[in-house]
Design a protein around this nucleic acid. Structure first.
Length: 473
DNA sequence: CTATGGCACGGATT
DNA sequence: AATCCGTGCCATAG
C-alpha cells in the first residue's frame, strides 16, 4: 500500500489521451466551443445529437442540468453543492450585423439566446411598428459589452425619423435587462443603472456627480482625485467608488465589472463565465448549484453510422476514415474526462469556499492549488491548468476569475479596506497591522503598506480626514 | 524618532 | 526553471 500512488493517473491508455485531456482542461468554454466546432467541421466521424440528458440519471430531459427528479433529492443535502456539466452555449456574437438569424432552431436554454433577441423580446410589447425597426437597428449595433457602436443621430438619419424617437427607443432598451444595454458609453450605462437603482435604494450622495465628472478618476481608482473633484473626503470618494463597483456595471452585457479593489491593473474583464453558480433559495442554508459550461457536452459523439461504414470503406479511404474515427473517439473521451475533472474540482471548491461564494471577498479561505490537488489526488499542475483563465459567475452575478479563489491575501485586503473605511482618523500602517492582527490576520507592517498601495489608498499622512465640520454643499 | 517606500531574499506557484 | 509574493532591512522624508 505504499507506492500505489502512481496508479489511477495512468488510466488513459495513450499519451495522446493524456496530453489532450490536459490541454482541454485549460481551455475556457469559449475556446472549447471553437475547438469543437472546428473538429466537427473537419471530422466526419463526429456528430451532434439532439437529445439532452440529465447529468445524473442520464435520462433524456428537455433542459440542460439535472432533471427535476434528480434535483429534488440532491437539493436536500444542503452541504453538498450540486455540480453538473451544462452544454449551455455562450453569448458570443460575431460582428453583430443585421440579419436576425431567422433560422435559429430551438434554444438550449433561455440563456442561449443572443443579446439582441433577449432584449428585443422584453421591449417588443411596448413598441410600435416603426419603433421596432429602430430597436432592431440599435440592438444589432451592440458591441460585446452591450454598448452602442452607432450614434443615435446616425440611426435617426438612416430611418428618417426625429432624434427624439430614437432616444425614446433607446431609453426603453436601456431599462431592459441587462440594465443599461444600448447606452452610448459606459458612463451613460452607469447613469441609467443608478437612476433605476435609486427607485428602490438610496445611493451615497454625489454618486451621480462622481459618474458624471469623475469617470476618469474612477477608472484609475484615483480616489483622492475623485474626492477633490467632488469636494468630499477621500474616504467618501472611496465609499462612492465602492458603491458603484458593487452595484453598477459599465459594461451591461458583461455580468460584472472585473473587480472592486486590486489596482488598476485589473484590466481584463471576464465576459463569459465558464462556471455559473447559483443558489436554490434565499435562505442561508441554500444548496449551491454549480453549472460547468462545457459546450456541446453530452451532445457530441461519434457518429454511429460512420462507425458502421468503416468496415465497408473503400480501400483507398479506409486508412483516413480509421484515423478520423480514432480521433473522434479520443476527443469525445478526453472531453468527458475534462468535464469530470472539473466537476470534482468544483465540487470540492464550492464546498470549501461556500462562505466566499455567498457572502463575498471577506469570507474567502486562503487556499493553495497544491492543497486542493492533494485532496483530489491529482497533480497540482492539473489544478493549475483547470483554474487558469477560467471565469466564474457567482450567485450575485459578479464574474470573477477562478484564480481569485486561491488568493491568499484577499480576505486580509478586504479587512484592511474595512478598517480604513471606518477609521476615525488616518491610521498608520503599524496601527492597521495591529488591528488586523486582532482580527486574526497576522501580517507584517510592511505588508500592510503593500496592500494599501495595491488598493490605491494613500499613506496615512496624505489621507486627510476632512474633519466633517464644513459639510457638503 | 516615526512612517514609508525601495531592494532583495527565500519560499510558494506556475 | 522562471515568477510571484510576503517580509525584513535600510535609507529617506517629515
Amino acid at each position: 500500500m505504499l507506492l500505489q500512488t502512481q496508479k489511477t493517473s495512468l488510466r488513459p491508455q495513450t499519451t495522446a489521451h493524456l496530453a489532450q485531456t490536459m490541454s482541454l482542461l485549460e481551455l475556457t468554454s469559449a475556446e472549447l466551443s471553437q475547438k469543437i466546432e472546428a473538429a466537427l467541421a473537419s471530422n466526419p466521424a463526429l456528430e451532434l445529437t439532439e437529445e439532452r440528458r440529465c447529468p445524473y440519471c442520464h435520462r433524456p430531459t428537455l433542459k440542460a442540468g439535472p432533471c427535476p427528479a434528480c434535483k429534488a433529492p440532491l437539493a436536500a443535502a444542503a452541504d453538498q453543492p450540486i455540480v453538473f456539466v451544462s452544454p449551455r452555449r455562450d453569448f458570443r456574437r460575431s460582428g453583430g450585423q443585421l440579419e436576425e438569424d431567422s433560422d435559429s432552431p430551438e434554444e438550449w436554454t433561455a440563456a442561449a439566446e443572443d443579446l439582441p433577441t433577449f432584449v428585443g423580446r422584453q421591449i417588443a410589447p411596448e413598441l410600435s411598428l416603426e419603433e421596432r425597426a429602430l430597436a432592431a437597428h440599435l440592438l444589432t449595433s451592440l458591441d460585446e459589452d452591450g454598448l452602442l457602436t452607432v450614434s443615435l443621430s446616425e440611426v435617426a438619419r438612416y430611418h428618417h425619423v426625429p432624434l427624439a424617437r430614437v432616444e425614446r427607443v433607446q431609453r426603453l432598451i436601456q431599462r431592459a435587462e441587462p440594465l443599461g444595454v444600448g447606452s452610448c458609453s459606459p458612463q451613460e450605462a452607469l447613469l441609467v443603472q443608478l437612476e433605476v437603482l435609486a427607485e428602490t435604494r438610496t445611493p451615497p450622495r454625489k454618486t451621480e456627480q462622481a459618474i458624471r465628472l469623475g469617470m476618469d478618476a474612477l477608472s484609475r481608482r484615483a480616489y483622492g482625485e475623485l474626492g477633490r473633484l467632488l469636494g468630499v473626503s477621500t474616504e467618501k470618494a472611496i465609499q462612492i467608488a465602492d458603491f458603484i463597483s458593487e452595484n453598477l456595471n459599465p459594461y451591461p452585457a458583461r455580468a460584472y465589472w472585473g473587480d472592486i479593489h486590486q489596482g488598476a491593473a485589473q484590466q481584463p474583464f471576464y465576459p463569459e463565465p465558464d462556471i455559473i453558480i447559483s443558489r436554490l433559495s434565499e435562505t442561508d442554508d441554500t444548496p449551491l448549484m454549480v453549472e460547468i459550461v462545457s459546450p456541446y457536452a453530452g451532445a457530441l459523439r461519434v457518429n454511429t453510422l460512420f462507425r458502421q461504414a468503416l468496415s465497408e470503406a473503400p480501400p483507398e479511404k479506409a486508412k483516413a476514415w480509421q484515423q478520423d474515427f480514432e480521433e473522434a473517439a479520443l476527443l469525445v473521451k478526453c472531453l468527458q474526462q475534462r468535464d469530470n475533472t472539473l466537476v470534482r474540482l468544483m465540487q470540492r471548491l464550492a464546498t470549501l469556499q461556500r462562505a466566499y461564494i455567498l457572502y463575498g471577498d471577506a469570507h474567502i479561505i486562503p487556499l493553495t492549488r497544491a492543497q486542493l490537488a492533494q485532496e483530489l489526488e491529482v497533480h497540482e499542475s492539473t489544478v493549475s491548468r483547470a483554474v487558469a483563465g477560467k471565469a466564474v459567475q457567482l450567485p450575485n452575478r459578479k464574474i470573477v476569475p477562478l484564480a481569485r479563489w486561491f488568493d491568499r491575501s484577499l480576505n486580509v485586503r478586504t479587512a484592511l479596506l474595512q478598517i480604513i473605511a471606518e477609521e476615525e482618523q488616518p491610521l498608520s500602517d503599524t496601527q492597521i497591522a495591529r488591528l488586523l492582527a486582532r482580527q486574526g490576520f497576522d501580517v507584517a507592517r510592511r505588508t500592510v503598506a503593500k496592500y494599501r498601495s495595491m488598493e490605491g489608498i494613500l499613506p496615512a499622512r496624505l489621507r486627510h480626514h476632512p474633519t466633517r465640520p464644513n459639510g457638503h454643499p
